[in-house]
Design a binder for these strands. Structure first.
Lengths: 219, 219
DNA sequence: GACGAGACGAGTGGATCCATTGAAGGAGCG
DNA sequence: CGCTCCTTCAATGGATCCACTCGTCTCGTC
């Protein structure tokens, strides 16, 4: 997974990065207004780089800008969230296939450790972090820059609903998730790309269908 | 296909729109430098809305920004172009499936006319325009906003190579394309979603493979 | 003659100030 | 008492000016 540099030397990139982290951490709720002045003060800059940062985040799909009105944290509705999962269902197996040949024994061992750790830890935030690490690690050896960036964006925009859903179902509701994670690691370790893609596609598909049965996540 | 408003009332949107058209029309070549001052003069605005417009185009994947250096028209390399086609190969059949139930008899008749017209007209620019119209029309009844926007972005970023390839193979080299277009319209008219998706996937896949055999398009 | 350091210039990034728009609250009329 | 219109203001959009960075050219030295 190739991540853009964003060295932090340029203010707009630094602000965009900080805001992105804040949104993914749940510090801002979807639909919440983001005032330029407030953000500028928070980052010790003028409104100008803030405006550029908001444009960057808009390109990430994390922020929605309305001309002459303002900026809000993006709020996917139920349909759009389902769309994201349908897209992921078709693209992530492709990305995994691209990455698999490059995965080292060390990578696979790390994936297994992550799967085990998130099975042990019941905390939602820990689960979210480890689950993200787990899957992105499985994609980390892919050399497909566009696809990798696209997938990461989809993960970012659905992050809030992943959290809401994880809270809703609790640790018990995640047992199938862990089972699928181990199936995935096993398939990868065997070098069985077909099976790994099938497991991954099913993993995402099942999540989408479960989400569809819990519309209260979007309330 | 849902297209963002961009009413033109706000300068940055107006500039972004104008630049997007110019890039898609081939007025700028990939890799070409885009100076803020030049663009500002062209659109009768200051450099500030130009900077925001460039950010917007960056989000469209049409422009590449480098901090403290400048902006260039995005240049996909061969690998990235192939990636775009692989992504399209998996997503456009999905989008077509979403759109098909909403397509009217009028839509389908229009598609057939477009297919016939582009078979008759040998000019490259005409072909590019009609081909784009043809496919986007087939997606036009889909209510999937994210997917629709994503597909349109992929069409935009590969537009330049579509043109270069169309020039290279000439009207004769497009005969298979027309054949596939009619297969697609027929399947849609029969309401055979499975077959339509299969034809479309093959259409995109074949194009990708043909592109891979003509690396001179990227030179 | 070639390589490296320093100065110059073009161009981008950022801050401040002004114009404009959209919304909210209050007053007046029906 | 409620609806409409107008006023007011807060927040965004845009222009100008200044600071800084990067590339290039030149001069000096080895």
């Amino acid at each position: 997974m190739v991540v853009t540099d964003s060295t932090g030397s340029v203010a707009s990139l630094r602000i965009a990065d900080g805001l992105r982290r804040a949104i993914l951490a749940g510090e801002f709720a979807p639909g919440e207004r983001m005032r330029q002045e407030v953000i500028a003060t928070r980052f010790g800059a003028s409104r100008l780089p803030v405006r550029e940062a908001l444009r960057i985040l808009q390109s990430d799909g994390l922020v929605t800008l309305v001309a002459n009105s303002g900026a809000w944290v993006s709020q996917l509705d139920e349909r759009e969230c389902a769309e994201s999962y349908e897209i992921r269902e078709r693209l992530e197996p492709l990305l995994l296939r691209e990455s698999m040949p490059g995965l080292t024994a060390h990578d696979i061992a790390a994936m297994r450790r992550l799967a085990e750790e998130m099975e042990r830890k019941p905390e939602v935030e820990t689960f979210l972090r480890l689950d993200r690490e787990f899957h992105l690690l499985s994609y980390s050896r892919a050399e497909t820059v566009l696809l990798s960036a696209l997938i990461e964006r989809l993960w970012n925009t659905t992050q809030h609903y992943r959290r809401a859903f994880a809270v809703l179902v609790g640790a018990d509701g995640r047992r199938v998730v862990h089972y699928e994670h181990f199936l995935l690691v096993d398939a990868i370790q065997r070098g069985d790309a077909e099976d790994a893609q099938r497991v991954l596609g099913g993993h995402i598909r099942r999540t989408r269908l479960e989400l569809a049965q819990h519309p209260e996540v979007f309330g």
